[in-house]
């Protein structure tokens, strides 16, 4: 396989579609495995992507997940058409959540989503404003002193 080739793509995410929730992250995981990316990087990218995907499905009508992979890094951008986040600092606190009860009953809304994305990324950036949706950008650097 040609590892020098850059690969990119996108998944459309539909809010409320819990049946397929996680499918985009699973697909990305397979793409990274086929490319031969080291398991520890795949795991971090998968977890960060899954949390971002779940946020779109839980809180917004729709969103787009874009990925961009080369020899240096995995870049993931998740842009949604949701209500936006009023207080990003508060949303970044572990345990803080605005999730309704029905979301918690499904095992989500523990207030760990954004912290989990940050934990698994080397670069994490979130842009959001009420009424303007949210964009999360994450970068995971590959080959930090080791072969992938």
């Amino acid at each position: 396989m040609d590892h020098t080739r850059k690969i990119d793509g996108r998944f459309n995410l539909v809010g409320g579609d819990f049946t397929n929730a996680g499918e985009a992250s699973t697909q990305l995981k397979k793409i990274l495995q086929l490319r031969g990316v080291k398991d520890s990087y795949i795991r971090r990218a998968s977890i960060a992507t899954f949390e971002a995907e779940m946020n779109v499905i839980i809180y917004t009508p729709a969103g787009i997940l874009r990925y961009d992979v080369d020899d240096e890094s995995i870049k993931i951008t998740v842009e949604d058409m949701g209500p936006g986040i009023e207080d990003i600092d508060l949303a970044m606190q572990e345990g803080y959540s605005t999730a309704p009860e029905w979301v918690r009953e499904m095992g989500w809304g523990a207030g760990m989503g954004l912290p989990n994305m940050k934990k698994n990324s080397d670069v994490f950036r979130i842009d959001s404003a009420p009424g303007e949706g949210t964009t999360v950008k994450m970068i995971i650097y590959l080959n930090k002193g080791e072969q992938s």
């Binding site: 929730a21 699973t26 095992g107």
Partner: peptide, 13 residues
Amino acid sequence: LVKPQVIRTAEIA
């Protein structure tokens, strides 16, 4: 928790 979400999460993790 007995939901398909548990399996999705398990796969990712």
